[in-house]
Nucleic acid binder design. Structure first.
Length: 628
DNA sequence: GTAGGGTTAG
């Protein structure tokens, strides 16, 4: 049996392998003669059990006609079209329509097509071209038909047809299918289709493949249009592939492509992505001086990057540039500014700008309201958050998943259980309840408020509803159980988190270690710390504080001092209380040498930071040290 | 003519 290309079988037969086409011996003899055809038709006439006899007869007549046309065509391959009258061509297209309808409506057409059209020569280019033409609206069906023909074996496809098939795939933006098609057929597409292929690959995020095709185009000496280069650059930027941006730009230069302001815009964005904001800003100045103004997105990204770097002065300069160059800041610009202000504890400033915008006649959209509500919630300013919530609804903006979660999170953080639960119910009713984030928000909120059992119930519900749990789901529960002092349960969920292949956050580890030490399970805490380090998770040296304190309490001084050394050697200062406790226990246990050693370190550090503090501690500790 | 922007832990 002819091999069916794997991706094709995946495409069509994944659900039911029995759909694989079965080939009858008849198929191998593809060029059926008219005699055979007539024989079949007679047979059909003699056995009228066919449910739709008239239809069958009619079809047989038309098949007969097409087959004859095909044969004529085979005999005159030089210029087939001229041999056909308009009438004959319309017959071919009619039979193609017939077949098209058949393969559209019969899911298992591969199995029955040859049986139902026994005398048709599918290998005839006129026939298959006509059928493929009928499939224009359904590129996958067309591909399926094409591959079915190939699977019959012996059918040779001309590059023209391959190009047609390939161009349809790339026009339908079916990047993966086009890629497999190219791999399977190994034909050399025409450069203009390769250019379309590049675009299609980029749009599907297959940047590396696109780079490969650019390479191929370069080898055959074909230059893609500036538009295509820019499109590729834009997708590289969107997918944060800065390396690809520079590679592409290098090739553009090599090919002598004349760039435009869009190209420069992408480069500025690339500079922002690699946190080389100064360079990005410099490039903006250059392009502005040359009299070109990039897209607003470029300005917005630059503002965002500058803000991240704390270059507020330059942010202001860019805003002024925007106004001067007739690209006034838009809703995205202001949203970015408010977002940054709210993130960076300048929430009052954020609210001021938000109000100012409204006063100047801007209508904040849902994203802006969400951002502001979230900022206010994080500021524990629930009154203003609630005010905005109702204002937004009054303005006709219906809260979505983001808005609900932001506000519900705020309600939980301020301990407004009832309102949080009520709003959550409303959100569920609106169909926003079944997402990981909405579950996480609720689980985290319940945990923060000591309702860890209810949180666990939601955790189970996620499984029932098929909502994916992520590391945040587990982290929230672990923290919840730790807050309740339920270390066994916390450890259970920690093990689950690891089993699922998630990396616990430093904070989760710190909490767990702290709680283990508090419960007197210092050994377990040590093991956990070491295990995490072994698996490359870099637990915080800060979380050694509770371990040292715990060991001091248990009078395991050698280990406590060893951990202390580890902390100091890694440049992390132990907490005051850790040192105090260690010195205290050391002196109580008559280990004055060690106590003095730790004290010496404490003082050296204390002197370094503040003389007054050092003296106070010296007096404090000196009193407790027994002089022998 | 269009897209771009915002959620949960720490």
């Amino acid at each position: 049996m002819a091999r069916i290309p794997s991706f094709f079988s995946n495409l069509c037969f994944r659900q039911n392998p029995k759909y694989l086409p079965a080939f009858t011996p008849q198929i191998r003899n593809r060029n059926l003669s008219l005699d055979q055809f007539n024989g079949n038709s007679e047979e059909l006439a003699q056995h009228p059990q066919n449910a739709n006899e008239t239809f069958a007869q009619d079809r047989i007549f038309r098949l007969n006609e097409t087959s004859r046309l095909s044969e004529e065509l085979m005999q005159n391959p030089q210029n087939p079209d001229e041999k056909f009258t308009q009438n004959q061509i319309s017959s071919v297209s009619e039979i193609a329509k017939e077949i098209s309808k058949f393969i559209r409506t019969q899911p298992r057409w591969e199995q029955t097509l040859l049986r139902d059209f026994p005398t048709l020569n599918f290998a005839d280019p006129v026939v298959y071209n006509a059928v493929l033409k009928q499939q224009e609206s359904n590129v996958f069906l067309s591909l399926r038909f094409y591959l079915w023909l190939r699977s019959l074996g012996g059918v040779s496809f001309d590059p023209v047809l391959c190009n047609v098939m390939f161009s349809r795939l790339v026009e339908a933006k079916a990047a993966y299918a086009a890629k497999s098609f190219l791999h399977d057929t190994r034909f050399e597409p025409e450069p203009q289709y390769l250019e379309l292929y590049v675009r299609c690959l980029c749009e599907n995020g297959l940047i590396d493949e696109a780079l490969g095709v650019f390479e191929r185009l370069k080898m055959i000496g074909y230059y893609a249009s500036l538009d295509t280069w820019n499109l590729a650059l834009s997708h590289c930027v969107r997918t944060s592939r800065v390396d690809a941006v520079w590679r592409l730009y290098g090739e553009m230069m090599e090919c002598g492509i004349v760039t435009n302001v869009d190209t420069i815009g992408h480069l500025i964005r690339a500079f922002c992505l690699e946190n080389n904001v100064a360079k990005g800003y410099e490039l903006l100045q250059q392009v502005l001086e040359a009299g070109h103004v990039p897209d607003k997105t470029v300005f917005n990204k630059l503002i965002s990057a500058l803000w991240k770097n704390g270059n507020f002065g330059t942010v202001s300069a860019v805003l002024h540039n925007m106004i001067a160059k007739n690209r006034p800041p838009d809703i995205y610009t202001y949203q970015e500014i408010i977002h940054r202000l709210c993130k960076g504890r300048m929430r009052n400033e954020g609210l001021r700008i938000f109000d100012e915008l409204k006063n100047r006649g801007y209508f904040p959209d849902r994203v802006m309201y969400t951002t502001m509500i979230r900022g206010l919630c994080r500021n524990k300013d629930l009154g203003d958050a609630r005010k905005l919530w109702f204002e937004m609804i009054q303005n006709g903006i219906i809260p979505n998943e983001y808005t609900y979660n932001a506000f519900i999170d705020g309600l939980w953080r301020s301990g407004h259980f009832d309102e949080a639960e009520k709003l959550h119910k409303e959100m569920v009713d609106r169909g926003y309840g079944d997402t990981t984030v909405s579950y996480n928000t609720m689980i985290n909120g319940l945990c923060l408020n000591g309702k860890v059992e209810e949180a666990q119930a939601l955790f189970e519900e996620m499984n029932e509803k098929g909502v994916v749990r992520d590391s945040i789901t587990y982290s929230s529960l672990i923290k919840g159980f730790c807050l309740q002092g339920k270390i066994t349960e916390a450890l259970h969920f920690f093990i689950e988190l690891r089993k699922q292949g998630f990396r616990p956050s430093t904070a989760t580890l710190t909490t767990l270690i702290e709680k283990l030490c508090e419960a007197g399970q210092v050994k377990e805490a040590e093991t956990l710390w070491l295990d995490m380090q072994k698996s490359g998770l870099e637990p915080a040296f800060r979380s050694l504080d509770p371990i040292i304190s715990g060991l001091s309490k248990q009078e395991q001084f050698a280990e406590a001092l060893e951990w202390l050394g580890c902390m100091i050697n890694n440049g992390v200062r132990p907490k005051k209380t850790t040192l105090e406790r260690l010195i205290e226990h050391l002196s109580l246990a008559d280990r004055s040498d060690d106590a003095l050693y730790v004290l010496g370190y404490t003082l050296r550090w204390a002197l370094f930071s503040s003389k007054a503090v050092a003296i106070r501690w010296w007096i404090n500790f000196a009193e407790r040290i027994p002089i022998t």
